[in-house]
Design a protein around this nucleic acid. Structure first.
Lengths: 95, 95
DNA sequence: TTAATATATAAGCATATACTTATATATAAC
DNA sequence: GTTATATATAAGTATATGCTTATATATTAA
């Protein structure tokens, strides 16, 4: 429980989750939204993944992240409480 | 939201909340449970208080902390998911 | 095969966090 | 008033966190 809560208790990671609420999103689109460097976003996504909150699917060079459906009630409630944010989709990585 | 999540994403503070689920508890009893120094517990309680998750009532030299009833769904769900832990009550500060 | 692109990992660094010990404050007991 | 007790605050320090830049890896395109 602590690990999952640590994973979501960060403004940037909450923003990532807001974006992922709109559906599967590739890393490059998330980078545009967050306004951090690509490695920073990659590292944040890794934390969310290690906590079991998001998962990823590789499509060519791209990687599409999404929120794991099955969640504890607490994590579910946190995600539900986030606004949904729709990042612009880059033209290259639409699958 | 971030502030509240940061406040609860710590093992010791989650344990404090577990204890407070059993009802109003004075600091000295919480110190016994946590096994940290008294100042450490005091500081953790302050974080929870500043996040609006707990509140306190002073009774003489003692201070009784309790969980704030009204909570956002997310924080509510987190607290609900914690087990209830009943700390031993010290003989002096029973009010 | 070479160049370009998407993502991940590594290393370094600045800031945040969470303890500790020491001390302050407030109340109670004598 | 003096002493003891409960709690809070302050200062110091070790570790964790979250960026950055540089580099590695994998895939695609030419």
């Amino acid at each position: 429980m602590e690990k999952q809560l640590k994973a979501v208790s960060d403004a940037n990671r909450l923003t990532l989750l807001s974006c992922l609420k709109s559906g599967e999103t590739c890393v490059c689109d998330l980078v545009d939204v967050i306004g951090l460097s690509q490695p920073a976003v990659s590292q944040q996504l890794k934390k969310l993944e290690e906590a079991g909150i998001v998962t990823a699917r590789k499509v060519g060079t791209w990687k599409h992240y999404r929120i794991v459906e099955e969640q504890s009630p607490a994590i579910r409630a946190i995600i539900d409480q986030l606004e949904t944010k729709s990042p612009n989709q880059c033209t290259t990585c639409q699958s």
